[in-house]
């Protein structure tokens, strides 16, 4: 591998890395609360609400993210009601915003699944005990269920974060130039396919390692047995 190629490719990929990071950070910052909310709705007693959240998760987990991103970016723009609404159009009309929206909606469904299993695995006795103490539903959730569920869900969620970083590459299909978008461009520009692949992989692996380590640290910080 020539040094020229590396010095040529890395600046482009760094610019792309910024976009990848942006999409991933929004994916976690918005997708995590969204997913937790979905999980709570899915485990709630309200039949209609929990059924619709179930269906939402099944649809987003059962279809490829590529289809979702195309429906959002190309499909929704077709409706005049969406074009005329400035707020929605601001989200859907811009490719970067649409990509972030797709990542958030997609990861929300997977996160909901992780947190639903965590919520269901909580010992019934604990919840009954908190009810016996006269804690309100919100207090039970805030002080009993949620702290336990987070610790239960964290290991699975850390691999979901790695998936978010990878899925953000699909933004390149709707003209957002992130790492994979630049990699494709560099590949067809320099013809050094393998070399570009290796450099780009190093970027992704680095991002994955950083996110896995930071989640491990959070996990350890939250752990009860120190």
């Amino acid at each position: 591998m020539e040094l020229d190629l590396v010095t040529y490719a890395v600046p482009f990929l760094l610019v792309g890395a910024k976009t990848t990071l942006l999409i991933s950070v929004f994916g976690v910052a918005l997708g995590l609360p969204f997913g937790i909310a979905l999980a709570v709705i899915r485990t709630s007693r309200n039949r209609i609400l929990s059924r619709s959240a179930d269906i939402y998760c099944a649809v987003f987990r059962g279809t490829p993210m590529l289809v979702q991103i195309f429906v959002i970016y190309y499909g929704l723009g077709q409706l005049s009601a969406i074009r005329s609404n400035p707020v929605i159009w601001w989200i859907v009309g811009d490719s970067l915003h649409a990509a972030i929206l797709a990542v958030v909606l997609n990861t929300g469904a997977y996160t909901a699944e992780i947190f639903r299993t965590a919520l269901l695995s909580l010992p019934r006795g604990l919840v009954e005990a908190s009810q016996a103490c006269g804690m309100s539903v919100w207090a039970t959730f805030r002080h009993v269920k949620f702290p336990l569920a987070v610790r239960q869900a964290l290991p699975a969620y850390s691999s979901e974060v790695a998936i978010i970083v990878k899925e953000s590459s699909l933004a390149s299909t709707i003209t957002v130039l992130e790492i994979t978008g630049y990699a494709k461009r560099l590949m067809s520009e320099t013809f050094a396919i393998m070399d570009i692949f290796i450099i780009t992989s190093a970027f992704y692996l680095m991002m994955n390692v950083i996110s896995l380590i930071s989640l491990k640290l959070i996990e350890r910080k939250l752990s009860f047995d120190k």
Partner: peptide, 11 residues
């Protein structure tokens, strides 16, 4: 498993 599928396909 660490890189996006899209990148593998491009390669």
């Amino acid at each position: 498993r660490g890189v996006p599928g899209l990148l593998v396909i491009y390669l």
